[in-house]
Amino acid sequence: MNTQSITTLLNSIIIPASNRTLGNEKAVSNVTIDNDGIHLDLTFPYPVAHLIEELQQRIDQAITAEFGDTPLFVQVQLAIGKHKVQPGVQTIAGVKNIIAVASGKGGVGKSTTSANLAVALSRMGARVGVLDADIYGPSQPTMLGVAGQEPRQHAGQMIPVMAAGEIQVMSVGFLVDTDQAVIWRGPMVSQALQQLLFQSQWDDVDYLIIDLPPGTGDIQLTLAQKIPVTGAVIVTTPQDVALIDARKAVNMFQKVNIPIFGVLENMSVHICSQCGHTESIFGQDGGKELAATLGVPLLGQLPLTLTVREAMDNGTACILAQQQPEIANLYEQAAWKLVQALADQGKDYSQRFPKIVVE
Rank of each mutant, 00 (worst) to 15 (best):
Q4I: 07
S5T: 15
I14K: 02
I15W: 05
I15D: 01
A17F: 03
V31I: 13
T32L: 09
G37T: 02
I38P: 13
D41L: 04
D41T: 06
L42W: 10
T43Q: 14
A49H: 13
E54A: 11
E54L: 13
L78F: 15
K82C: 10
N97T: 13
I98F: 09
I99Q: 07
A102N: 02
A102I: 10
G106M: 08
S122C: 09
M124V: 01
G125S: 08
A126Y: 01
V128C: 09
V130K: 00
D132M: 09
A147F: 01
A147W: 00
A147P: 00
G148Q: 07
Q149G: 01
G156I: 08
Q157K: 15
A163W: 04
A164F: 01
S171P: 07
L175Y: 07
V176A: 11
A192R: 06
W202I: 06
V205H: 03
D206H: 11
Y207K: 03
L208I: 15
L212A: 07
D218R: 10
Q220G: 07
I227L: 11
I227D: 03
P228F: 13
P228Q: 08
I234Q: 04
D240Q: 13
V250C: 11
Q254E: 09
N257W: 02
N257S: 13
G262R: 04
V263R: 03
M267S: 05
H270E: 06
S273V: 07
D285S: 15
A291V: 09
G300D: 08
G300Y: 04
L306Q: 10
C318Q: 09
C318A: 15
Q322T: 02
P325L: 08
P325C: 09
E326M: 12
A328L: 10
A335V: 12
Q345Y: 07
Y349L: 15
S350Y: 05
Q351V: 09
R352V: 10
R352L: 15
R352H: 14
P354E: 11
V357Y: 10
